[in-house]
């Protein structure tokens, strides 16, 4: 057994040129009275080699946000705003150019590795295909590189695994194959959407470590999307907290874990069971349900579930504004840790 720490010192490369810069991105579905705004004016920035954590409940728009960034939303969706990857605008890019970017420069790892691997193709075929298409490698070189990558993600008997089909592998192994595939072309940006939700905690710990070491060794920037704050600890440099399609808090990870400003961030953090604490009689949770996206927005979307809400909250929506040098929060009555 090797003892490794999930806490790895991270260079806070604030000055690094942005790998991904998103400005006021909004995503809407449907029209007229039935219009649903899934993502509302989200701005974010991921520097080269940085890891940004995005946390929120189901329906908070975190997945839609990155599906929009990747240009993978259905035709019925209307995306506005700006998505710049290494300075180049991605919104409105031709499908050919987008395809060149995806797979080589930007790759994604999804929650369910079974549905994102092609069931009737051998692992080896799927891996080498990526290299032959995106990196123009010949079959032998691609095979060599695929094998290397499988070993890199600690898959035992890699040569044998190349001949297997996805269903012959366990869930954890499939997710490692997905990560190997995502890293084949040394992407600048890796987007991982709930990469460990379907996995056991033992396997989850391995996958998180793997992502961490990939990032350290290959310098890949990362966006890690999750509903569980605990997964971001030790991995993310910065964190965005999303609620009902909007960013409600943005801060550096350490600050956020130490002293969350938004009542929703504080509530989510409280839901992580603390091992050091004695057993409480009630498990912390956030009362109520996330709002129905079909309902019109009035005031703060979190107000009906918020313990700090006052009259103002249901009347006027709080803007995301600078709280201190590196922190932004959208709340009329944020927690005061001073």
């Amino acid at each position: 057994m090797r003892w490794m720490s999930l806490t790895v010192p991270v260079d806070h490369a604030i000055s690094a040129p942005p790998c991904l810069q998103v400005e006021a991105l909004s995503v809407r579905f449907g029209g007229g009275a039935r219009e649903i705004a899934a993502v509302k004016e989200v701005s974010l920035r991921i520097g080269a080699g940085e890891c940004l954590g995005i946390v929120g409940e189901s329906g908070s728009g975190k997945t839609q946000l990155f599906t929009a960034i990747m240009g993978l939303l259905p035709q019925t969706a209307r995306t506005t705003g700006s998505v710049r990857f290494k300075g180049g605008e991605m919104l409105g890019m031709s499908p050919t150019d987008l395809n060149r970017l995806r797979g080589r420069e930007i790759s994604m790892v999804f929650q369910d590795p079974m549905t994102s691997l092609t069931p009737h193709l051998r692992i080896g075929t799927q891996l080498t295909e990526v290299l032959m298409l995106h990196a123009r490698m010949d079959a032998a070189a691609a095979r060599q590189r695929a094998l290397q990558m499988l070993e890199r993600v600690q898959i035992t008997r890699a040569g044998q695994r190349m001949h297997q089909y996805p269903h012959e592998l366990s869930g954890g192994m499939r997710q490692r194959v997905m990560i190997a595939m995502a890293c084949l072309c040394n992407p600048s940006l890796l987007i991982a959407d709930e990469p460990t939700t379907a996995l056991d905690t033992t396997v989850q710990a391995q996958v998180l470590l793997l992502l961490q070491s990939m990032r350290r060794e290959l310098g890949t920037a990362m966006a890690l999307i999750t509903h569980d704050f605990a997964l971001l600890a030790g991995l993310a440099d910065h964190v965005l907290v999303m609620y009902a399609g909007r960013v409600v808090e943005a801060a550096c990870a350490a600050d956020l874990f130490d002293a969350p400003l938004h009542p929703y961030s504080a509530g989510l953090l409280a839901c992580v069971p603390r091992w050091s604490q004695a057993r409480a009689s009630r498990l912390p949770s956030i009362a109520g349900q996330p709002p129905d996206p079909r309902e019109p927005e009035a005031g703060c979307a979190f107000a009906p579930r918020c313990t700090r809400a006052q009259a103002l909250c249901s009347q006027q929506r709080p803007e995301l504004r600078l709280h201190s040098s590196s922190r932004r929060v959208a709340c009329h009555y944020p927690h005061d840790h001073g």
Binding site: W3, M4, S5, L6, T7, D200, T201, T202, Q204, A205, L208, L209, D228, F229, A230, L231, A233, G234, F257, L269, V272, P273, R274, W275
Partner: peptide, 10 residues
Amino acid sequence: SIPQIPPVAV
């Protein structure tokens, strides 16, 4: 293997 805040050695 339980993820925790602050992170612990795994």
